[in-house]
Simulated scan of single mutants.
Amino acid sequence: MQTGYYSAAAGMVTQFNRLDVIANNLANVNTAGFKEDDVVVGDFMRLYKEARDELPHANNTKEGAAFINRTMSRTPQIVDEYTDFSVGNLQKTSNSLDLALSREGLFFAVKTPEGIRLTRDGSFSLNDEGTLVNKQGYEVLPADYFQSKTGISIANQDNIISIDKNGQISTNIPNSVQLTQNKKLLIVQPDNIKLLKKEGDNLYKFDNINSIKPVEESGAVAQGFIEKSNVNAVKMMTQLIETNRLVGMYQKAMDAQMNDMNKDAIEKIARKA
């Protein structure tokens, strides 16, 4: 009896964890550049049949056997977590400092107190010193940052700001419409996007950031656009309803298991009395 009770409790905990992910996705449905998180819920045997060639250990080995024994369970559990990095819809804003990346896997780079971080949110602006910053006030980095260690500055009198599809910034010569080149945006593409870690504020941490080289010809920068969140609100609401129903089902199973255990205990006590 206790085995069934604990299995139902474990299944409920799994659904609670799934609810946390769904709630976070829904909370960021209007956050520019946000990428949807998801979890894989299932029992090991089903996953083993679907992805046996991609398991972290070879078949018929001591390590493989230990992995199977450790993971084997009939209880639904979160067996994997991942982020969907697909490109969201681009929304036109006509703001010259709003930028979007139209290709998956590309990121802008910003300088934070904790180090360089990556982001897809291109809602940029100029601070009081004329430095290009993001919503949190972090400096947006240029392609030559690792050599120059300086940010991107735009003079107040530069009322024409043009940014091409590769991130090259050009501004007008004072009192004219003739453009001159400024710095170029640092646009990067990590080799393994799965190594990115979300840190809040729509930022990603990449441990080996100094190894990343600028993407010189990305062809993906869209000036005057913002990339919207790729969260599908309808799908999230459907998953929310499904998860709530599963929580209710596990609750009923736990109640039934507890009632049976109580009944069994009462009967045993009565017989001994």
Rank of each mutant, 00 (worst) to 15 (best):
M1D: 14
M1S: 13
Q2W: 13
G4C: 09
G4P: 07
Y5V: 10
S7W: 05
S7Q: 13
A9R: 04
A10Q: 14
G11N: 00
F16T: 14
N17C: 04
R18N: 14
A23G: 12
N24I: 04
A27D: 08
V29M: 13
N30G: 09
A32P: 05
A32L: 08
F34L: 00
F34V: 06
D37H: 10
D38I: 03
V41I: 12
G42R: 02
R46H: 09
E50D: 15
A51Y: 15
D53F: 11
D53G: 07
E54Q: 12
L55Q: 11
K62T: 11
K62W: 08
E63C: 03
G64D: 06
G64C: 09
A65Q: 12
A66G: 09
I68T: 11
R70Q: 15
S73T: 11
S73V: 02
S73I: 03
I78R: 04
V79Y: 04
E81R: 15
Y82Q: 11
D84C: 01
G88K: 01
N89I: 13
T93Q: 03
N95T: 12
L97E: 01
L99G: 03
G105S: 06
L106T: 02
F108G: 06
A109M: 00
V110N: 01
V110G: 00
V110R: 02
K111R: 12
K111D: 13
T112R: 00
E114M: 12
R117I: 03
L118N: 03
R120M: 07
R120T: 06
G122Q: 04
F124Q: 00
F124L: 02
S125E: 06
L126T: 04
L126M: 09
N127T: 03
N127M: 10
E129K: 12
G130Q: 00
T131R: 12
L132G: 06
V133H: 07
N134H: 05
N134S: 01
K135H: 11
K135R: 14
Q136E: 15
V140I: 01
L141P: 01
L141N: 00
L141D: 00
A143W: 01
Y145L: 05
F146I: 07
F146M: 11
Q147I: 10
S148C: 06
T150K: 15
D158V: 09
I161P: 02
I161A: 03
S162I: 05
I169K: 02
T171W: 03
N172F: 05
I173D: 08
I173R: 07
N175T: 06
T180Q: 15
K183D: 00
K184S: 09
L186N: 02
V188W: 01
V188K: 00
V188Y: 00
P190S: 06
L195Q: 14
L196Y: 03
K198S: 08
E199A: 08
L203S: 00
L203D: 02
L203K: 04
K205P: 04
K205I: 09
S211L: 14
S211H: 13
P214Y: 07
V215D: 02
E216S: 12
V221H: 04
A222H: 09
Q223I: 10
G224W: 05
F225E: 05
S229A: 05
A233S: 15
V234G: 08
M236E: 14
T238D: 11
T238L: 10
N244G: 15
N244L: 15
R245G: 10
G248W: 02
M249Y: 10
K252I: 05
K252P: 03
Q257V: 08
N262Y: 08
K263F: 08
K263Q: 15
D264R: 14
D264C: 02
I269S: 08
K272M: 09
A273M: 14
